[in-house]
Write a protein that binds this DNA or RNA. Structure first.
Length: 246
DNA sequence: TTCCAGGCAATAC
DNA sequence: GTATTGCATGGA
């Protein structure tokens, strides 16, 4: 898929992005008093160079909820929704499920700012049920679900599954999003219509880094793309990665 | 006003 | 398997 001449480029691009933007501190947490860097669209809760997250089961489920809420919307909206929700209910599967079932309108009003409220309410109930069952079946708080099982939950697609596995469970799964496609299509490494799994496989085969660097790479891609790949024509002002264009 | 945002599922070929 | 469309809201 990639000429051997460019074999190391995914690592070189990572190095360049890291040098340019430094450590991103994903995944952000609402109750974490982290730094507030001058990051595009960032508000708070980031923890650069500290990969020891999530620190407890509530934070883990916060990542899982956030992964669904952030589908096709902006992070500031998600942060608002999480703060709204946090005043109403604990971030654990059983509490979320019961609150959503018994207080539908307050629940929807809390997350309304992220859009797609009806769908996302259903999705959040589904994922809550999934983790309730997972814990009951395996009787282990910290059991890690399989990617296949996650994908069987209505509302969890490829990207959300990888987001949950990478940032909540710290599994070495590369997360591909629309920004990833834009940057690496523009640079010439992938094609516009390549499938999610083929792009994921491309990164997992050609980028050598541990799970923390998998997290870092995705965050750096988002940061870079927000600056140069949000307005059409995408990438034309990207001087930072221009040297890696093929 | 139009376009875009850290997608997904259902449907149609 | 791949392409298209509806889903909701807020901000630039």
């Amino acid at each position: 898929m990639i000429n051997s001449k460019y074999k190391n480029n995914l690592n070189l691009i990572f190095d360049k992005l890291l040098k340019t933007y430094s450590y991103q501190g994903w995944w952000p947490f609402i109750d974490y008093d982290g730094v507030n860097p001058t990051k595009t669209g960032a508000i708070s809760g980031y923890h650069p160079k500290d990969y020891d997250f999530p620190k407890n089961s509530n934070q883990k489920f916060e990542v899982i909820i956030g992964s669904i809420l952030t589908q096709n919307t902006t992070w500031p909206s998600v942060e608002q929704a999480l703060n709204n929700l946090n005043k109403l209910v604990d971030f654990d599967p059983l509490s979320i499920l019961e609150f959503a079932n018994n207080n539908e309108e307050p629940f929807k009003n809390a997350i309304r700012c992220v859009g797609f409220v009806n769908q996302k309410t259903e999705y959040l109930k589904n994922i809550s049920n999934f983790y309730i069952d997972l814990k009951e079946d395996l009787d282990k708080e910290d059991e890690i679900p399989s990617r296949k099982d996650l994908l069987a939950v209505k509302g969890i697609g490829n990207e959300t599954a990888d987001s949950i596995l990478l940032f909540a469970h710290k599994q070495k799964e590369f997360k591909v999003d629309s920004y990833t496609k834009r940057i690496f299509t523009y640079l010439g490494y992938i094609k516009e219509n390549d499938s999610y799994m083929s792009i994921k496989n491309f990164f997992e085969t050609n980028f050598s880094g541990d799970v923390n660097m998998f997290q870092e790479y995705h965050a750096l891609i988002v940061e870079h793309a927000k600056r140069y790949y949000s307005k059409k024509p995408y990438g034309v002002n990207d001087k930072i990665l221009n040297e890696f264009k093929i």
